[in-house]
């Protein structure tokens, strides 16, 4: 493994806060690789994050300007920074609970406004840092600290949500596909306007243990097995798509009738996906 990315890490930050097996480290690597491959001017690079495990991906790790904000508000802070100084490349990195639950309103309105932001959602399907509570991305039936009998509520499909709200570019990949994930991050950064990447990042500690995944490997196998490329998903009946992780890239063109909107909506209940 190359150590070339050490130059992007803030001196003095020796260890990550992430649990063994957390996907966020892979995502951090992917973000740094994207920044490196794009040759971005680091002096004009601003990372904004909210609260939660994923908010720690940029802050304090990345050696650039970082703004670690309040729970849910990262996109609103980023909007102010980008509008006040359009020369900055502004990248929001935060979790699903932060961006979609608490900050859901900011997310859809930023997409609607079309402000030139890149928002990367480290989606672990649960509130990790605060103790494993359910969020709007927790699968139907999944066990969490607040859904001990299984989550009874439907989940947001973040691709549909953000694309429907007006994003210029949306992608979804898991950390188990680091190369396409990194390419999607690069495309999102290059996209003028609002771009969003939904990154499935397994949480062994809060999600895996509660939902009886024996070890980290089993949880990663689950993610790997749920993946379904959007092209393949388009050939399958809707009933086969429930709970699957439909991956790929989408643009507003896909909103045209019949263009094959991704579907990984709520499953029939019972054990996780």
């Amino acid at each position: 493994m190359t150590r070339v990315f050490e130059q992007y890490l803030r001196p003095g930050v020796k260890a990550t806060a992430f649990c063994p097996g957390c996907g966020h480290g892979i995502l951090l690597h992917g973000i740094l690789r994207a920044v490196d491959e794009l040759g971005l001017d680091r002096e004009k690079l601003l990372f904004v994050s909210g609260i939660g495990c994923a908010a720690w991906i940029p802050s304090p790790h990345i050696l650039a300007d970082t703004l670690h904000t309040l729970h849910g508000r990262a996109v609103a802070y980023a909007t102010g920074a980008k509008l006040a100084n359009p020369a900055l490349t502004v990248i929001v990195v935060s979790g699903d609970g932060d961006l979609v639950s608490i900050g859901g309103n900011h997310l859809v309105h930023a997409a609607r406004r079309g402000v030139d932001l890149t928002v990367i959602c480290a989606n672990n399907e649960i509130y990790g840092m605060t103790g494993g509570q359910a969020g709007p991305t927790t699968p139907v039936g999944a066990i969490s600290a607040t859904t001990p009998r299984g989550n009874p509520y439907a989940t947001f499909d973040l691709v549909k949500l953000v694309l429907g709200a007006g994003a210029a570019y949306v992608a979804r990949y898991p950390v188990t596909q680091p190369r396409p994930m990194t390419d999607a991050i690069k495309k999102a950064i290059r996209t003028p306007g609002f771009a969003f990447v939904d990154v499935a990042s397994p949480c062994p500690t809060q999600f895996g243990r509660r939902n009886r995944f024996e070890d980290v490997g089993a949880l990663y196998d689950r993610t790997h097995d749920l993946v379904l490329p959007r092209e393949e998903a388009a050939m399958r009946p809707q009933s086969e798509l429930a709970g699957r992780l439909v991956v790929g890239e989408w643009t507003p063109e896909d909103l045209r009738l019949g263009a094959g909107i991704p579907h990984d909506g709520p499953g029939p209940g019972g054990p996780p996906c």
């Binding site: 703004l67 508000r73 802070y77």
Partner: peptide, 18 residues
């Protein structure tokens, strides 16, 4: 912005750009 929380948040973000 979409609400007052977003407004003050955007103000803080803008202020940090100078």
């Amino acid at each position: 912005m979409e609400d007052e929380i977003a407004s003050i948040s955007a103000v803080i973000g803008a202020s940090w750009t100078g």
